[in-house]
Design a binder for these strands. Sequence first.
DNA 1: GATTAGATTCCGAAATACCGGAAATCCGTC
DNA 2: GACGGATTTCCGGTATTTCGGAATCTAATC
Lengths: 196, 196
Amino acid sequence: MTSAMTDNSTPPETEVLSLLPARLRAARRDQGLSLDAVAKLSGVSRSMVSQIERGESSPTIATLWNLTRALQVDFAGLLEGATDAPGIEVLRDASVPTINNKGQGCSIRILSPPEEVGRHEVYDIRFAEGGILDSDPHKRGSREHLTVISGIVRLKAGTQVELLKAGDTARYPVDQPHTISAETGPAQVFLVVQDG
Amino acid sequence: MTSAMTDNSTPPETEVLSLLPARLRAARRDQGLSLDAVAKLSGVSRSMVSQIERGESSPTIATLWNLTRALQVDFAGLLEGATDAPGIEVLRDASVPTINNKGQGCSIRILSPPEEVGRHEVYDIRFAEGGILDSDPHKRGSREHLTVISGIVRLKAGTQVELLKAGDTARYPVDQPHTISAETGPAQVFLVVQDG
DNA sequence: GATTAGATTCCGAAATACCGGAAATCCGTC
DNA sequence: GACGGATTTCCGGTATTTCGGAATCTAATC
């Protein structure tokens, strides 16, 4: 058969899988390896490597995994779309998207682009005195990285509680309910959410 | 046959693939979906989904891809090791590791743990008037996310130049030389480096 | 131009991923 | 405890991946 790739559910747009063959071949050639060499390194037969590199076969994750280890490429990055923007994108102070109706007495300024899902998001959060931000658990494995710019905040993650003042930083898993509050006065924090 | 997973080249340690079935099943159950439901959503048959979730079959990347889209999980993250730390880690203002001898007139406060390489790093950088931080290109695909806390800074990435003041944010690729400088007075910026 | 060494592609045969329907298992409800 | 309804697993058959070897292609050398 001519095209073995079962590309059902493949709208015109994101055929990320079609990029994989070329990337694999490039990775191999970059290291000056022959098909036979990677075959011995990975345990995948030469013919299979050849077919995969020509897009004539859709490898099982097991074999792909073995290939990535032999070629020393990152399994994850291999399947990601070419995500490179050309130049500097600037988001001016006045035009930062802001959410006010979440939590109480706090405004959330979204500093990362909405498209960029799956890696990390960046927020600038400003609390009035007594402001509270309550969050439900995110996806398992996610972590937050919180740095206090000014004021004093109280951080609660699961059962644990910490008091943080300007300059302090806290990191914590967020597969559990967590709360940030500014009890003693206004505060500003910088929050990086790393998706799990 | 009982175990179809071709697990050749599988040292005792990182059998990341063995985690995949459980993760898929968890993702499905979290959304309250039945095998039949995801089958219709993804185009993969119920039986296949069942087999994959029980580790009795190693899916091709094509079918796995379809599953990830139906379950709305990140293909990349699915294959990464479980990276969860137990509780809140706190880094106090006074004990933040700081670098002063890089660049001129600037001190770099490292807010992310050194172990956590490969995802993102977080820095709090403080410039004296005239301070300059020159950086060589990082790994291709890396991006920086810079937010100005106070003062005015000049950002140069490749050939492009932008002037940023307090509250402004800039995002830019760093597979090219880039420079941050505070020409008109002291400044403080927050920098998130996303590894490519 | 012929020879040789290396790399890649082609070709059965065996293994296994994949599908659709049937059987089995799990629950609530009467 | 028996009866739906829903979910999951089992069981054919088919399509595709995967392997090892043979054939083809590529280039350098003589």
